[in-house]
């Protein structure tokens, strides 16, 4: 994993860790929404590319959130 990808993975996992502790069953949506609200598109693109390449290191919740990001938004 490149240094850049490793950093994005760590950041995504940190976010997922927070939302994992929150109640309810929409944690993946919340992580995705957080990423969408705070991450610049080129970071998201890099994260998606990393997920495409197997998503090494991403926590299960982070992976689920990344999948949500693929759903095109209006």
């Amino acid at each position: 994993m490149s240094a850049d990808a490793a950093k994005l993975v760590r950041m995504a996992n940190q976010i997922a860790t927070f939302f994992a502790s929150q109640p309810g069953d929409i944690q993946a949506e919340e992580v995705a929404a957080h990423l969408k609200a705070f991450w610049e598109p080129r970071m998201l693109t890099a994260l998606l590319a990393h997920a495409d390449a197997g998503g090494a290191g991403l926590s299960p919740l982070a992976l689920r959130a990344v999948e949500r990001l693929r759903v095109p938004t209006a």
């Binding site: 850049d4 950093k7 609200a37 705070f38 610049e40 598109p41 080129r42 970071m43």
Partner: peptide, 14 residues
């Protein structure tokens, strides 16, 4: 779309 934050700018610069 949101822009880059300072640490992200530096990452993107590298």
């Amino acid at each position: 779309e949101p822009g880059l934050r300072i640490p992200n700018m530096l990452d993107a610069a590298v």
